[in-house]
Design a binder for these strands. Structure first.
Lengths: 350, 350
DNA sequence: TTGTATGCGTTATCAG
DNA sequence: CTGATAACGCATACAA
């Protein structure tokens, strides 16, 4: 148990005062070159590293960034985290990662607890049903800067970086329309999530543009995970007539649609076209390869981190709302609807 | 900027000394019930939270766990991280996450830097080519406990939790053999990684058992990612005769094999059987669904975290080496080899 | 330019 | 049982 080397030891070794050591470390005052070199040498030879704890206590701020996300296990988030980490690393910030499991209370408890570590800033991807705007607001007022990612909590007025959900969803839907589909199902995320809401809005907009009626029972809400996507798809696919195409508002739910279709012996894409949202890594490997809307996860994280760092560095000014573009990836899960409008026939056969 | 509430304020509010407050918080001495209640009430009403920084400085240890992994973006790792986080959370430890990108120098720098945060413990999934055994050893001697996960760095003698790589690989290979394959290709991970080595060993063992000759040019080394898997597969599939089945030592590389096969117009599984290792989420959605060896990522993390916490709590005793079992998942990417040993014919046609 | 001294918020020791 | 008080390692205001 070698006790860690402290500044005092550096001072002794370099035969200077402890204050001088601090100055050369932080560049907070001019130090005679000779002394400076001695100090540096002492630091090197003793392998000294400043205690982040002591420093943080003194400065009332550490070089940690708190990051609160719903669930790292959701394949969309790792890229975001990585984007954050990469820019944070360059600025020598470290990430404390917290998974809320979409549990608002866990989110709040993490939030409060993180506080006691005096992080330099906070990045949060709000939980579904998150109700932390108030909490966050008080945080932002008396604590470190906060930027929200991907979803905007109700009532949140601070910095936020998002993705062009509405435009992306609209494009996806247009693609379906363009291929000839007129009976579109949609599986949305939790509707209190802004991104879910926006995607649905995009969907509706595309339908309106094309003057295609929206069939209310064809919009099903799920929870952005595979299971709920599967369940929603089952509901959709058992309807008569059923949709000839489904827009799943994320790729995980699209997987659920595949599953449901397989179970009901509905062939994709011949009998059912599917389009997703996210462009997760596996999208090009599903059978059929999933057409989807690419979402720049890494950029999302990187951008948010950059913005956060600017705030930490004291950048004032109006809150930013940065919206990153999406891109439609056309693969093979969307084709023209079956001939003879099969679903109609079935309906009349009923 | 409301300054955070400190212990002193609690003491004043409760009309006790600051020491007493500390005692009720930490249960470090008996406090008269009446005072205790007053203190608790003050804490509650002022929303007090102990400064982790001050506490850490004083105790020379925080309640953070450092976790060093190659890349959160590799879909095998999120589950591991989640496993860690869940058990850590229950014990009220927090995770600071570091991605090394398999860069040994980044790994070492993270390691040293984490030190200055006085984490209670360290979890590390060593980078490929990691050479941190020595570094880690000094760390373990004078610093917090460390447990390695998934891969054992060369020369590391401390705690480690692994997966039964050899047995898993052996089972996968046996499955190929059982289906009638006699010309097996294998795409390994970086051979300095213990897990890659063990999987290859399992592969060889199965061949020996079956008295099937191992064809040296059929074992190709790659880097556990999709691209290198693709490249290795291209090499393999251009050979004449080529293997009728390929064991990719992880699922990401198996994806690369799918890609290569598709590009060369080799149909899977009719002309080429593929088996992977990991059982990533997408494995059942590839075309064809990927047969693979399930690796308990979440358990890996959870187990390691539990072990680490025990060490933090002062559990002495011999270093542990915990090996978690794998499970063969049979799906549809493995079938009997093509009739008439097609590859042979091609070879003779040359 | 450099040294000294104080305090950041806790815990822990030691009297009372 | 409870209250002072001295560290913990560092940054900083101030003195020299």
């Amino acid at each position: 148990m070698t006790p860690p080397v402290t500044m005092r030891q550096i001072a002794e070794r370099a035969e200077v005062s402890i204050g001088t050591v601090s100055h050369v470390i932080n560049g907070t005052a001019k130090v005679r070159e000779k002394l400076r070199l001695r100090v540096l040498e002492a630091i090197r030879s003793l392998g000294y590293q400043p205690s982040q704890l002591a420093r943080g206590l003194r400065r009332n701020q550490t070089s940690m960034l708190g990051m609160i996300i719903p669930d790292i296990t959701n394949p969309f988030f790792p890229a975001v985290v990585r984007g954050v980490e990469d820019v944070a690393y360059k600025r020598s910030y470290r990430i404390v990662l917290c998974n809320t499991d979409n549990d608002p209370s866990k989110e709040i408890s993490y939030l409060n607890e993180l506080r006691s570590y005096r992080p330099a800033g906070l990045l949060v991807i709000p939980a579904a049903e998150s109700d932390i705007a108030a909490q966050l607001k008080s945080f932002a007022a008396s604590g470190p800067p906060v930027v929200c990612i991907d979803r905007r909590p109700l009532g949140w007025k601070g910095d936020v970086v998002l993705v062009a959900n509405e435009a992306g969803a609209c494009n996806a839907t247009r693609h379906l329309l363009r291929m000839g589909h007129r009976h579109l199902g949609v599986i949305t995320g939790p509707m209190h999530l802004t991104n879910a809401e926006e995607r649905l809005k995009g969907f509706r907009q595309a339908l309106e543009e094309a003057k295609v009626a929206i069939e209310p029972e064809f919009v099903q809400e799920a929870r952005f995970d595979r299971r709920s996507g599967y369940e929603a798809a089952m509901r959709l696919l058992r309807m008569l007539p059923r949709p000839t195409a489904i827009f799943a508002c994320n790729d995980l739910m699209a997987l659920g649609v595949f599953l449901a279709a397989r179970e009901l012996h509905i062939r994709c894409p011949e009998e059912l076209s599917i389009i997703g949202f996210d462009n997760l890594d596996f999208a090009e490997f599903t059978a059929p390869a999933l057409s989807t809307v690419h979402q720049p996860g890494y950029q999302l994280g990187a951008t948010a981190a950059r913005l956060l760092v600017e705030r930490i560095d004291g950048r004032e000014g109006a809150f930013q709302k940065i919206v990153l573009p999406t891109e439609l990836k056309i693969r093979s899960s969307v084709v023209a609807p079956p001939q003879g409008t099969a679903p109609r026939k079935r309906a009349s056969a009923r």
